[in-house]
Simulated scan of single mutants.
Amino acid sequence: MIAVDPYSYHFLRDQLLCKPPQVWDGRGLPIYEALVRIQGGGKTVHTSDYLSAHPGISEPVDFYSLGMLSHRELRGRPNVRFKAFVVHEPPVFAPRLYRILPELTSVFERVYVHNLSGDCYSLKGVDQSKLRKLYFPIPFNHVLMPFWARQDRIKKLVIINSLQNPWIYRCVDMVGVQSARGLRLNTLSEIFDSSFTGEEFYSYRIHAVAALAGLSAIDLYGMHWRLALSPRIVWPTYLLNYRRLMSVYKGPTESKFATLSKYAFSLVIENTAMKSCLSEKLFDCFYAGSIPVFVGPADVADFLPPESFIDARRIGDWRDVWTYLQSLNPRQIENFREAGRAVFTSGRAQPFFDFYNQVFS
């Protein structure tokens, strides 16, 4: 039997095995297809709560976690083999998982993280022989032609992101981590130590959108950007730039690929500068044929060809970036788009597309 601890309690009760709706634009599809392949090979698959509901199970169980910590309840069961733990998020988003890496590497055979060098997290007490490189899973290994082929594009930038307040994650981290000796409260120096969590780009993203809004160069889509009674708004960076943000805010989007396909350029700012930490954001642009204007890890070219995106920090400030984008002729624009499509045909996207197959192999 295979038991999988999902990344959220919403996917317990075997909901992880349900095909994601089409409106999710591929979200959830990589893990769903990986589990379907396992079932097709004759193995039984359940989410982790099945084991708690059936304590009498004696058959061998291979246990995998995508981020939850149910393994702590199962360590006394001799038939459970703890195979792999996947840390999808960087420390700025999930600091507690990185603080318990010593525990995770003592329990699991493999632990997947964004980089193996300890950039933005501590290797103290970590069994480094258990660490493996995480390639953020993507749903498709080809462009989505109905979107990619679109030619009548708006010659400006688009960004699709939900509002995220990084201080929420720091405050949550104050609770600390559960250890064998009980709950330990993290110290203030730990909570605000950016050498551990890494530089967050949530604030940088807001400043970038505000600067480009002043140039009428961008449209903003996503959830939670309007003022509401929520901890998200307790954030000076957001409040001080609110008027600029609202001047370009277009509301939520029903399909990110359809929205991306309307624009020639997309602003892609990762959540952190953490080494080798790439999410699905660049690939979403490649799928839809929108040229990514990128800010993120400095080693991005180790994974994707530099001719497939525009590195904003190599150009200058945002006015310089906008001037550069306006100067591109149709042939240059098409060269960027073709380079993005070649990411799939050349095999550069394969480690990301095959990631869950490697985890469950």
Results as ranks from 00 to 15, higher is better:
residue 344 F to G: 06
residue 44 T to M: 12
residue 227 L to P: 08
residue 180 A to E: 14
residue 193 D to M: 02
residue 340 G to T: 04
residue 15 Q to T: 07
residue 74 L to H: 08
residue 299 D to N: 15
residue 121 Y to M: 05
residue 306 P to V: 00
residue 84 A to P: 14
residue 30 P to V: 02
residue 135 Y to H: 09
residue 12 L to C: 04
residue 251 G to H: 04
residue 236 P to I: 00
residue 262 K to D: 12
residue 319 R to C: 02
residue 178 Q to W: 00
residue 335 N to R: 13
residue 130 K to V: 07
residue 359 V to F: 12
residue 86 V to F: 12
residue 288 A to L: 07
residue 259 T to M: 07
residue 121 Y to C: 09
residue 330 P to N: 10
residue 116 L to Y: 00
residue 271 N to S: 12
residue 280 E to P: 03
residue 234 V to M: 03
residue 221 Y to S: 09
residue 221 Y to L: 03
residue 149 A to K: 12
residue 332 Q to E: 13
residue 184 R to I: 00
residue 172 V to F: 07
residue 205 R to P: 01
residue 327 S to C: 10
residue 345 T to P: 00
residue 236 P to W: 01
residue 121 Y to V: 08
residue 108 F to E: 13
residue 63 F to D: 03
residue 300 V to G: 12
residue 82 F to M: 11
residue 269 I to R: 14
residue 115 N to R: 09
residue 170 R to V: 11
residue 242 Y to H: 15
residue 26 G to R: 05
residue 70 S to E: 08
residue 334 E to F: 01
residue 225 W to E: 06
residue 163 L to W: 04
residue 83 K to F: 02
residue 168 I to M: 03
residue 340 G to Q: 03
residue 9 Y to R: 14
residue 146 P to K: 02
residue 301 A to D: 15
residue 358 Q to D: 09
residue 180 A to P: 10
residue 261 S to D: 08
residue 179 S to N: 09
residue 62 D to L: 11
residue 234 V to R: 01
residue 15 Q to W: 11
residue 147 F to I: 04
residue 151 Q to K: 15
residue 107 V to P: 07
residue 251 G to C: 06
residue 329 N to R: 13
residue 262 K to A: 09
residue 42 G to L: 02
residue 255 S to Q: 06
residue 167 W to F: 11
residue 352 F to Y: 06
residue 75 R to D: 00
residue 188 L to R: 06
residue 324 Y to M: 15
residue 64 Y to V: 05
residue 86 V to G: 15
residue 338 E to T: 05
residue 194 S to D: 05
residue 324 Y to R: 15
residue 210 A to W: 11
residue 157 L to R: 04
residue 22 Q to H: 13
residue 193 D to Y: 02
residue 47 T to R: 06
residue 110 R to D: 14
residue 222 G to P: 07
residue 341 R to D: 02
residue 91 P to H: 08
residue 84 A to S: 15
residue 201 F to Q: 06
residue 189 S to R: 09
residue 71 H to N: 08
residue 279 S to A: 14
residue 340 G to N: 00
residue 344 F to S: 04
residue 263 Y to N: 06
residue 130 K to M: 04
residue 39 Q to L: 06
